Computed example of a mutant assay.
Amino acid sequence: MNWLLVVVGAMVGAPLRFLTDRAVQSRHDTVFPWGTFTVNVVGSLILGVLTGAAAAGAASSHLQLLLGTGLCGALTTYSTFSYETLRLAADGARGYAAANVVASVLAGLAAAFAGAAAAQALWG
């Protein structure tokens, strides 16, 4: 049963990642990977809220599997972030590559923290 929750979450997360990435990137005329950045930050926010809710006893283990492992696991992408960063550097856009690393890490951590803090305020 647990594996099914992960599969269902991933079935939503993977297409949501693809569609969000394409929609965001199409609105920016730059080599910076805004689509990947967006899905990773949003996924960090969702996971922060979920983690905070679970710590407060407001999220079941089933919800954690569905949204945390399934949805966020398929929505976010460390491999694409890594590939795009290396590609930027290889193409001579080293400033964008460095900005991608720094901004992605800082924004992801900030989003996770904000999500956990919001959950604490709601359910703590």
Rank of each mutant, 00 (worst) to 15 (best):
W3C: 01
L4E: 09
L4A: 14
L5P: 08
V6F: 05
A10R: 00
A10I: 03
A10P: 03
M11N: 04
V12F: 15
G13N: 09
R17G: 10
R17T: 12
R17K: 10
L19H: 05
L19I: 10
T20P: 07
R22I: 13
A23I: 05
A23R: 14
Q25P: 03
H28Q: 09
T30L: 07
T30G: 03
F32C: 07
W34I: 01
G35Y: 01
F37R: 00
V39C: 10
V41E: 13
V42D: 07
V42R: 05
G43N: 01
G43V: 10
L47T: 04
L50E: 07
G52R: 07
A53S: 00
A54T: 04
A56H: 12
A58I: 03
A59C: 02
H62S: 13
Q64F: 06
Q64W: 03
L66C: 05
L67I: 15
L67C: 11
T69R: 05
G70W: 05
L71E: 08
G73K: 02
T77V: 13
Y78P: 03
T80S: 14
S82R: 13
Y83E: 07
E84P: 08
R87Q: 14
L88R: 01
L88K: 00
A89Q: 10
G92D: 10
G92W: 09
A93C: 10
A93W: 04
R94S: 13
N100W: 04
N100V: 12
V102W: 07
V102Q: 05
S104T: 15
V105N: 12
L106I: 14
L106R: 07
G108I: 09
A112C: 13
F113C: 07
A114C: 12
G115W: 04
A119R: 02
Q120E: 14
A121E: 06
W123P: 01
